[in-house]
C-alpha cells in the first residue's frame, strides 16, 4: 500500500520543553490511524508540525513521497489535507451553512471567479448535504456561535470534510459529543473511508472510540513513539498499559 504521509525524526522544542522528540511514523492510504497517549505527550504538537501551523525544530514530513515540511497550511489544505483542532474552531458570526461553504470555496476556481462568480461558489447543495448528514438541517441558517458545544464540534468536523479531502487529521473529535452523535461521527468517518478512500489520523482519549474505529494505533509518550500496532495488540502491550492505559 502507498504511504500517504510519512513523518521521520520529527522534533519540536519549545525552549527547554521537548514537546516532540524524534517522532517517526507513516500513514498508509485508506487506513484510519489512531494517535493516542497521555496528556501533554506531544500529539497536538505533532499535528501542528505536520500541517505547517508550527515549524518543526528538526525532521521531515512527506506527502505522497514529496517533502512538504514548512509548507503553508493553506497550500497543504489545497493538496487535500484537512484537519480539525483540539479547541473549537468555527466562525461564530457565520451561519452553519456559510461555515461549510467557506470550508470548500478556496478549492474551486480562481481568486477572480471567487470575486465575480456566484456568491455561494456553487456550494450550497454540497453544504446542505453535509449539514443533513450531521443531522443539523434545522440549524443551517443559525450563526455557528449560537450552537451548543457538541454541535459546534460536529460542525468543525464537517468543515474538515467539506472539500473532499484525501487525508484528514482530527484532534480529539469526540470530546463533548454525545453518544448518539459519536456513533454518527464514527459512521461518517467509516463511510468516507470506504466510499472515497479518505485516510484519517485521529487523536482521541476515548478508548472505545479509538479501538472500534481505527485499523492501527500509534502510542506516544513524552514526545516519542512508544508503541505501534493493531488496536488489540497495543491494548495488551505492557509498556503502553504502564504509560497510559493503566492509569
Amino acid at each position: 500500500m502507498a504511504r500517504v504521509l510519512e513523518v521521520s525524526g520529527l522534533r519540536k522544542h519549545f525552549g527547554g520543553i521537548k514537546a516532540v522528540d524524534g517522532v517517526s511514523f507513516h500513514v498508509e492510504e485508506g487506513e484510519i490511524l489512531g494517535l493516542i497517549g497521555p496528556n501533554g505527550c506531544g500529539k497536538s504538537t505533532t499535528f501542528n508540525c505536520i500541517l505547517g501551523q508550527l515549524a518543526p525544530t528538526d525532521g521531515e514530513v512527506r506527502l505522497d513521497g514529496r517533502v512538504v515540511t514548512g509548507m503553508r497550511p493553506s497550500e497543504l489544505n489545497r493538496l487535500g489535507v484537512s484537519r480539525t483542532f483540539q479547541l473549537l474552531q468555527v466562525f461564530p458570526q457565520l451561519s452553519v451553512r456559510e461555515n461549510l461553504i467557506l470550508a470548500g470555496q478556496e478549492h474551486k476556481g480562481t481568486m477572480l471567479s471567487r470575486l465575480l462568480g456566484p456568491r455561494d461558489a456553487g456550494l450550497t447543495a454540497a453544504a446542505d448535504r453535509m449539514i443533513g448528514f450531521f443531522k443539523m438541517s434545522h440549524l443551517a441558517g443559525e450563526k455557528a456561535g449560537g450552537l451548543s458545544y457538541g454541535q459546534q464540534k460536529l460542525l468543525d468536523a464537517a468543515m474538515a470534510f467539506m472539500a473532499g479531502p484525501r487525508l484528514v487529521l482530527l484532534d480529539e473529535p469526540a470530546g463533548g459529543v454525545n453518544l448518539t452523535m459519536l456513533g454518527d461521527l464514527k459512521d461518517r468517518l467509516q463511510a468516507m473511508n470506504r466510499e472515497q478512500g479518505a485516510t484519517f489520523v485521529v487523536i482521541e482519549h476515548n478508548m472505545d472510540f479509538v479501538m472500534s474505529l481505527c485499523t492501527r494505533v500509534v502510542v506516544m509518550a513524552e514526545g516519542r513513539v512508544l508503541a505501534e500496532g493493531r488496536p488489540e495488540e497495543v491494548r495488551r502491550n505492557p509498556a503502553v498499559i504502564d504509560a497510559y492505559l493503566g492509569h
Binding site: P73, S74, F85, Q89, F91, Q93, E106
Partner: peptide
C-alpha cells in the same frame, strides 16, 4: 470575515 474571526482556522481550510 473568516480572517477576522479565526485566521488560523481559515488558513487550515485553504484560505490564503
Amino acid at each position: 470575515v473568516a480572517l477576522r474571526e479565526n485566521p488560523v482556522r481559515a488558513l487550515s481550510l485553504g484560505v490564503d
